[in-house]
């Protein structure tokens, strides 16, 4: 019997090797590059990338600007997505799943094509040329809105109607029922929506490049530039580490982010 169990367990060996080779080792290499510099005498250990990042006004302002774009995009997404998710989840229509589908369908269409289509539209209405920041934020919202709607819908759909009825029976007005019952109970959806939108808004440079005519450099673009334009892999790796620290901190802040991306990407939808 033990030998049979052993044979099933062995199935994870290829995946374990794959993860070590193509996930763990590459991440360790980033760490290595981040804390080393190339000198004529070879590579040596150094904190200078870290120091450079936090003493360079240009890099700090990129970080700050990237943060601002991401915060605004996430907030706008939330403000648009919440009412939609609420309406859909609370609707008594039989086909509300199909309606939801129509809202999140763009998730399955290549995002570069969608962003280029948006570029054409913004160009046709005359926004593209002179409103780099506005267009970038519109693009982020456009691209990531479904990822905000889906987790919100899921948490609002699960909401037990009897809580709302009880609150109303006990004298809560509509505003109170919403702020004290509905919204707090939908917090898991709000949090997973925020994490789904915030991080890509700081890093998805295809959106900012396409819609700002390559005028806006967000954090993800900066990493790209250090690799493909300046050939300074050490600095590029350091910015990646800083980005990872931001991701890690935001996960600590929001807690329980587990599996949210999988939920939202909709493994259950195919």
């Amino acid at each position: 019997m033990t030998s049979l169990r052993f044979s099933r367990k062995q199935l994870c060996i290829p995946y374990a090797l794959f993860l070590i080779l193509f996930v763990v080792i590459p991440m360790l290499m980033i760490l290595f590059y981040a804390f080393t510099v190339s000198t004529p005498d070879g590579i040596r250990f150094s904190f200078s990338n870290l120091v450079n990042f936090f003493t360079s006004e240009a890099k700090l302002s990129t970080l700050l600007m990237s943060f601002t774009i991401a915060i605004i995009s996430t907030a706008v997404c939330l403000v648009i997505a919440y009412p939609i998710a609420y309406i859909l989840a609370r609707s008594k229509l039989k086909k509300k799943q199909v309606l939801l589908m129509i809202f999140i369908l763009p998730m399955w269409i290549n995002f570069v094509l969608r962003i280029t289509a948006l570029r054409e539209l913004l160009n046709a209405i005359g926004l593209l040329e002179s409103h780099n920041y506005l267009c970038t934020i519109i693009g982020m919202v456009y691209d990531f809105l479904p990822f905000m709607i889906l987790p919100l819908y899921t948490s609002l759909e699960k909401l037990d109607n009897s809580y709302l009825e009880a609150a109303a029976d006990l004298g809560g007005n509509k505003f109170n029922v919403f702020t004290k019952i509905t919204f707090p109970l939908s917090m898991p959806g709000v949090i997973s929506g925020i994490t789904m939108v915030f991080m890509p808004s700081m890093t998805n440079y295809v959106v900012s490049d396409t819609l700002s005519n390559f005028n806006i450099t967000i954090l993800g673009k900066q990493i790209d530039q250090y690799f493909t334009t300046y050939y300074d892999w050490h600095m590029g790796s350091m910015i990646s580490i800083i980005l990872l620290v931001i991701i890690f901190l935001s996960m600590l802040l929001t807690g329980g982010f587990k599996d949210s991306k999988n939920d939202a990407r909709g493994a259950n939808l195919w």
């Binding site: 590459p26 700081m202 990493i223 990646s240 980005l243």
Partner: peptide, 9 residues
């Protein structure tokens, strides 16, 4: 992870 970090790694 951010995709750009996966990519450069």
């Amino acid at each position: 992870n951010a995709e750009i970090v996966t990519a450069i790694a």
